[in-house]
Amino acid sequence: MKPRGWKELKPGAVVTEPGSAEKFKTGSWRAFRPRWIEENCIQCMFCWAYCPDMAVRAKDGKRGEFNYDYCKGCGICALECPGKKGKKAIVMEEEGK
């Protein structure tokens, strides 16, 4: 998308297109990347509920893959994840390693 010039702006920076935050991909902010280990997952959906973005996908009540377009790597999901028998179902790994 061509960057907008000053004549094309809405007065007062008001956003008139609902849901347009979807176009703003924030995944590049991430320094750590969450990895889902499905065998340790108990489908509690804590990660989905706690994610401050909407970066944990859910389908038919089941946990799906991370949406890395928006995941900022904050690690909240990994912290909250109870996992199975002491083994976390989400681990944070440094990006680029």
């Binding site: 000053w6 007065p11 956003v15 609902p18």
Partner: peptide, 19 residues
């Protein structure tokens, strides 16, 4: 529906001031 008060960073702030 509209949103007021979005974050405008280096890529647009100066354009808003010019406007």
């Amino acid at each position: 529906p509209v949103s007021y008060g979005p974050l405008i960073l280096t890529d647009l702030y100066m354009e808003y001031r010019r406007a």
